[in-house]
């Protein structure tokens, strides 16, 4: 996997792709978790959501690099 991609001829880190993919994944996962009612077992929901997104983004990033 190349470490940078050309986006409209501008060279960007592939991490940007990982970021967008993580956003989509997070959005889907969040829907599923709401549907399952997992959030009633969560202390601070905002903190949980932020951490969930971070986990997804970092895991994707680690796959690339």
């Amino acid at each position: 996997m190349p470490r940078e991609i050309a986006l409209l001829d501008a060279l960007m880190p592939t991490l940007i792709l990982a970021f967008i993919a993580a956003l989509l994944l997070y959005w889907l996962l969040d829907k599923v978790l709401v549907w399952l009612g997992v959030y009633q077992f969560i202390w601070y929901r905002a903190l949980f959501r932020l951490s969930l997104f971070s986990c997804l983004f970092c895991a994707l990033g680690l796959l690339i690099y």
Binding site: I42, S51, C55, C58
Partner: peptide, 9 residues
Amino acid sequence: LTLMIVAVA
């Protein structure tokens, strides 16, 4: 649960 996912992040 919350603290665990924060730690993993």
